[in-house]
């Protein structure tokens, strides 16, 4: 007996649909980051962009990265930016010019950059597809194991860089 499936249901289990939902939200939030006048609104829009990026990571089977993105970017980095905003006043005002003189040229150059990138894509062989349903579900275990086995040196160096950065940021930000 042949079962009939409602095509609307098929549409809503399609990962491509969710990918484009998150992508449009991501691009809209990114335009908000570069276009809005008030820098606090820009920071909140950046937080939305990070959350949408985490959604796309979940679609591609990278759950650990999605959690790290939410925790580090949408949590810590946004709060850090808000602290810096509160420490430097006189930037939240209605009459502050927020774009410089080369804004038109920057717009043209970034449009040219997007055109070049997409034209390069059109000439390449990118016709393969990602199947999110076969992505391994024990990503976190595999990431942790390979961080400890084959990327140990990079792991140590990254920890060293974090320490140096913390000392450097303290030295730069303290009163002299």
């Amino acid at each position: 007996m042949e079962t009939t499936v409602n095509p609307v249901h098929l549409f809503f289990v399609n990962p491509l649909f969710y990918f484009w939902v998150f992508s449009f939200a991501l691009l809209g939030a990114a335009v908000g980051v570069v276009m809005m006048r008030n820098i606090v609104h820009c920071t909140l829009s950046l937080c939305l962009a990070f959350i949408c990026t985490a959604g796309i990571y979940v679609i591609f089977g990278a759950e650990f990265l999605a959690a790290a993105e939410i925790l580090i970017y949408a949590g810590a980095v946004t709060v850090l930016i808000f602290f810096a905003l509160m420490l430097s006043k006189r930037i939240i005002g209605r009459d502050i010019i927020y774009k410089n003189r080369q804004s038109i040229w920057a717009m043209l150059l970034s449009m040219a950059m997007a055109l070049v990138l997409i034209a390069t894509l059109a000439y390449g062989n990118w016709n393969y597809e990602v199947d999110p349903t076969v992505a391994p579900m024990d990503n976190t275990k595999m990431i942790g194991r390979s961080l400890m086995l084959s990327y140990t040196l990079v792991f140590w160096v990254t920890g060293f860089i974090l320490t140096i950065t913390m000392i450097g940021a303290l030295m730069l930000a303290k009163k002299d």
Partner: peptide, 28 residues
Amino acid sequence: MAQVIPVYHVLVVSALLFSIGLYGAMSR
């Protein structure tokens, strides 16, 4: 309907996002 995501969709989104960020970095 296909259950897969063609990879150039991701590349196009990423190219647009990079260009938006480039515009912001140059014009702010």
